[in-house]
Design a protein around this nucleic acid. Structure first.
Length: 457
RNA sequence: GUGGUAAUAGCUCAGUUGGUUAGAGCACCGGAUUGUGAUUCCGGGGGUCGCCGGUUCAAGUCCGGUUUACCACCCCA
């Protein structure tokens, strides 16, 4: 009987774990740099939590089953509903702003492809309780910091910024109903990946002259790449609308000014590109939305996020403005590999011991335990290979310090208990002393702390 | 869920129009030499050629199915 992993699931050999931990450590330190607090939630949740948020269609994309208590349950496909529940349940007790982050595995029953598996890790960061665009700016800055922290510069990755509120204005100007708005936004979301004729066909039921409307939209998305163009376009667009709509556009453009000014002051401008072709699939986003992509525009999104001011309330909590993003490990790791940005370090012990087969092991073991108790990692040989073989093998493992325990045979008079050579591996400096822990341990600790051997007395 | 391509050792791959006991490099293990993070030499283990079935005297090679991976759809929270 042979067993293999389920499709879309991964195993992590030590080298893979090293890479994963590198990613996690970077995410975590970035989140801490922005003073976000870590939270966590169950892997298994009631199926209804996701149906409530995303509709029945979602069920086909979930790992779900009925448990022995007849409960319909699902492995979490995303973190946001759980987050909304956590925050909603204690909303009144939580100090604002609520800045939380989480790193965890998510599960989606989808066809695996490049950049998309059935189990993957996500870095989630959210701010709840703040409606101002300062929060959106801070999250985008954290997203940028996370990418930069992995070695990705503005020449490699770009965050594309858009706004669903302005899209609603755009659609209102085309006299679309609320129902049509949802459908049309879904089409707009896919413009880049769908043949134009297909998009047109999808638009035609909702508007009279889909062809010219689409041409106009395409031109707009091409031309509106900075704030000046955005402002000019929407002021012009709003002119024939009602006074309240014109006022709305003016107020929204003010929000844009705040967002962009904050991003500029945060040093993120080189990473951010206004791009109204981003609308993001599902309907719960309510304001600014953004996605991070490889700068060439190729590949799947590295991260995505936006404002979801209604979701906490929809899931049973109080009204609570919110904005957040998620970054997946799969696409990011693919990109880092392509850019040759994966770390090459490997796990090294601080101290590597070598014990000549004829020398007693007890001294070496005690030495190892003493250094371990002092907080250092120490590797002991377990088989009695020849001295040279051990030394060679241990050198390749690259500890900072090697301690070579030799037998006393050559000079019993001076070294009754044998002798130990301490070796500064990097500098190739050796120091040979008696096997006497009261001498050895201080020497070793001095080296580990100072980086060089203490002066001879 | 639909379609296309692929599958030989842990990894990267050879394997001639179907023809004895399926190969190389790297990696791993052992031995010799070598004490300064790829020395050199010798040796070794490891594959029911993804799986099941069919055609044939004979299948890694041809055919069908299946699984998995990749690619394009669907979807992408």
């Amino acid at each position: 009987m042979q067993f293999q992993t389920l499709p879309g699931f991964r195993e992590f050999y030590p080298d893979d774990c090293l890479l994963r931990n590198h990613l996690f450590a970077t995410w975590k330190s970035c989140a801490r740099a922005y003073a976000y607090s870590e939270y966590d939630a169950p892997v298994l949740e009631p199926l209804s939590l996701y149906v409530e948020k995303s509709g029945e269609e979602i069920v086909g994309q979930l790992f779900h089953f009925t448990d022995r208590g007849e409960r319909e349950v699902a492995l979490r496909p995303e973190m946001t509903p759980s987050l909304a529940r956590l925050v909603g349940a204690k909303a009144n007790a939580l100090k604002r702003p609520i800045r939380w982050f989480n790193i965890s595995e998510q599960y989606r029953y989808e066809r695996p492809q490049k950049g998309r598996l059935r189990a993957f890790y996500q870095f989630n960061a959210d701010i709840l309780g703040i409606a101002e665009p300062t929060a959106d700016a801070e999250l985008i800055a954290l997203l940028v910091a996370s990418l930069k922290g992995l070695g990705l510069g503005a020449d490699s990755v770009q965050v594309r910024l858009s706004d669903r509120l302005l899209w609603h204005v755009l659609l209102k100007a085309a006299n679309l109903s609320a129902e049509a708005t949802t459908a049309v936004l879904a089409v707009v979301d896919k413009l880049g990946r769908m043949p134009r004729e297909k998009s047109l066909a999808a638009l035609e039921p909702w508007m009279d002259d889909a062809s010219s409307w689409l041409s106009g939209i395409e031109a707009m998305m091409r031309e509106v790449r900075d704030f000046l163009a955005l402002e000019t376009y929407f002021v012009e667009l709003a002119k024939p609308l009602e006074a309240s709509d014109r006022k709305f556009v003016g107020a929204r453009l003010d929000q844009w000014r705040i967002l962009l000014a904050e991003l500029d002051a945060l040093g993120c401008s080189p990473f951010v590109q206004i791009d109204l072709s981003i609308v993001r699939g599902l309907a719960y986003y309510t304001g600014f939305v953004f996605e991070a992509f490889e700068a060439t525009g190729e590949g799947r999104a590295l991260a995505g996020g936006g404002r979801y001011d209604d979701l906490v309330q929809k899931l049973g909590g109080p009204a609570m403005p919110a904005v957040g993003f998620a970054m997946g490990d799969v696409t990011v790791t693919d990109l880092l590999r392509a850019k040759d940005l994966l770390p090459r370090y490997f796990e090294k012990a601080d101290v590597g011991l070598v014990v000549e087969p004829s020398a007693p092991r007890a001294n070496a073991l005690l030495f190892a335990q003493t250094l371990r108790a002092a907080g250092y990692s120490v590797e002991m040989p377990l088989s009695g290979q020849s001295l040279n073989k051990q030394i060679k093998a241990m050198r390749q493992k690259g500890p900072r310090l090697m301690a070579i325990f030799k037998s006393a045979e050559e000079d019993l008079a001076t070294y009754a208990d044998g002798r130990v050579e301490l070796l500064d591996v990097a500098a190739n400096v050796r120091r040979e002393i008696k096997t006497d822990l009261s001498l050895l341990v201080p020497q070793a600790l001095a080296f580990l702390q100072e980086g060089t051997f203490a002066e001879d007395n």
